[in-house]
Amino acid sequence: MARFPEVNILLVEDDEIDVRSIKRAFQAQKIANPMFEASDGVEALKMLRGEAGHKTVPRPYLILLDLKMPRMGGIQFLHELRADPALRDSIVFVLTTSDDDRDKVAAYENNVAGYLLKQDVGDDFMHTIRLLDCFTISVQFPP
């Protein structure tokens, strides 16, 4: 399906196996959006800010955020993101194995678009992938 302009996906995830399985699920659903990878919050912020020595993620973009990561975890990343005038309008989905209510509360306090569970492989995970697919097609991104 045509997507104009193409939405870039920034996957913030430290687990290489998860990165591969997410990419595979995207391919299976024929989601061909450009994918950028950051292994923690620190690297993600550098990429979003276009700091020297890092790949810049062009707009429009969608952030898929893991929570438990070294150096800077997902919730701390959200605090930084929402406090930065140039980044605070970003759309973020949490994609995590954590089913902990405290994580959900903290994520929604930082106005994530949605909280998605990674552990639901199989049918449920396909709903997640389809959601993200429809999302990149139907949503008007920040100009």
Partner: peptide, 13 residues
Amino acid sequence: RMLENFLVSIQFP
């Protein structure tokens, strides 16, 4: 379709 999948997949506290 997006909202449909959203309502199925999204976790609330």
